[in-house]
Amino acid sequence: MAKTQFPMMPKAGGGVLGKLVGIVVVLAVLTLVLKQPAEAAAIAKGIAAGLGGAVEGAATFLKGVLG
């Protein structure tokens, strides 16, 4: 029997455009870190704080729904 693929899931590998966008993003982040390390650190701390807040909010929501 053949494997069943989910119609909504993207195929592995991606196209040239996706790879190009990924390379551009990696180069932009690398340039930011090398040229402005203090600003890059501040951005990383902000992202981490935002993710931490989102996790705490989700946990609070689940406690309210399930508890």
Score class of each variant (00 low, 15 high):
Met8Gln: 03
Met8Phe: 08
Met8Ser: 09
Met8Arg: 03
Met8Cys: 04
Met9Glu: 01
Met9Thr: 09
Met9Tyr: 00
Met9Trp: 00
Pro10Ile: 04
Pro10Asp: 01
Pro10Ala: 02
Lys11Met: 08
Lys11Asn: 11
Lys11Thr: 09
Lys11Ser: 12
Ala12Asn: 04
Ala12Gly: 03
Ala12Phe: 10
Gly14Tyr: 12
Gly14Met: 01
Gly14Lys: 06
Gly15Thr: 11
Gly15Cys: 14
Gly15Phe: 15
Val16Tyr: 15
Val16Arg: 15
Val16His: 15
Val16Lys: 15
Gly18Ile: 02
Gly18Lys: 10
Lys19His: 12
Lys19Met: 13
Lys19Gln: 14
Lys19Leu: 13
Lys19Thr: 07
Leu20Gln: 11
Val21Arg: 08
Val21Leu: 08
Gly22Gln: 13
Ile23Val: 05
Ile23Arg: 05
Ile23Thr: 10
Val24Leu: 04
Val24Phe: 00
Val25Ser: 13
Val25Asp: 12
Val26His: 00
Val26Cys: 01
Leu27Asn: 03
Leu27Phe: 05
Leu27Val: 13
Ala28Ile: 03
Ala28Ser: 08
Val29Asp: 01
Val29Trp: 05
Val29Lys: 06
Leu30Ile: 15
Leu30Ala: 15
Leu30Phe: 14
Thr31Lys: 13
Thr31Gln: 11
Thr31Val: 14
Leu32Val: 14
Leu32Lys: 11
Val33Phe: 11
Val33Pro: 01
Leu34Trp: 06
Leu34Met: 13
Leu34Ala: 14
Leu34Phe: 05
Leu34Ile: 10
Lys35Phe: 10
Lys35Glu: 02
Lys35Asn: 05
Lys35Pro: 00
Gln36Val: 08
Gln36Ser: 10
Gln36Lys: 06
Gln36Cys: 01
Pro37Trp: 05
Pro37Asp: 03
Pro37Cys: 02
Ala38Trp: 08
Ala38Asn: 10
Ala38Glu: 11
Ala38Lys: 06
Glu39Cys: 01
Glu39Ala: 12
Glu39Gln: 12
Ala40Arg: 03
Ala40Gly: 00
Ala40Tyr: 00
Ala41Pro: 09
Ala41Tyr: 07
Ala42Ser: 11
Ala44Tyr: 06
Ala44Ser: 11
Ala44Glu: 08
Ala44Lys: 04
Lys45Arg: 13
Lys45Trp: 06
Ile47Val: 14
Ala48Arg: 09
Ala48Gly: 04
Ala49Asn: 04
Ala49Pro: 00
Ala49Leu: 07
Gly50Met: 08
Gly50Ala: 03
